[in-house]
Amino acid sequence: MTQSTTEPPRPTYQAIVQAAVEATGSAGGWLLAVGEGAFTVLAVHGHDGRANDRIGAQVAADGAAGFVATSGQPAAMQISADDADNIGAGGGVGTASAILAVPCGSEEVIGVVELVDPAAGAYSFDDVEVVSMLADVAGAAMTETGTGSTPPSPASLALGLERLAAGDAGRYAAVARAVESLL
């Protein structure tokens, strides 16, 4: 990993990652932009704040985030203690016991939201769904700032938000905060 910039985290990205971390009770997480052969760290939340030093850094495109970026499928996994390759995921701090990585972008994967260590011990399918919604917002934000290509349609976002609101209003509030910061 190489440090590359002192640029502060963009508030929108930061709000999205924070919302994802809080909605899932994670210890930390980050938003990664897909680049040529590597990820660029766009925002980090959690991990005692140390990870903010990593904004703008290039990180290797491997592990769960690398798989998600190439397969287009979310990955929610509990990590066995002997899987050393997963050390450093989700902000590059510590060894993760569970990882959730979700792709961003409507027409192609332009980023990945990756979270680690939920308080519950494992990520649920509800977590996958709420972070997928946030990842859609992240994809739109990345598009707005020229990092991506095409935003998700308002109709698809509204549909997802309505579904989340029907099932769990608390989670919907986290998504709404992120959307508000985008507007």
Binding site: Q73, A75, A76, M77, D83, D85, A122, V128
Partner: peptide
């Protein structure tokens, strides 16, 4: 959801997703 699976390197894992 919470599917016990084989994993690389002869390890195991628990995975969630349509995959």
């Amino acid at each position: 959801i919470d599917v016990p699976t084989l994993w690389k390197g002869h390890t195991t894992s628990v995975q969630t997703g349509n995959s």
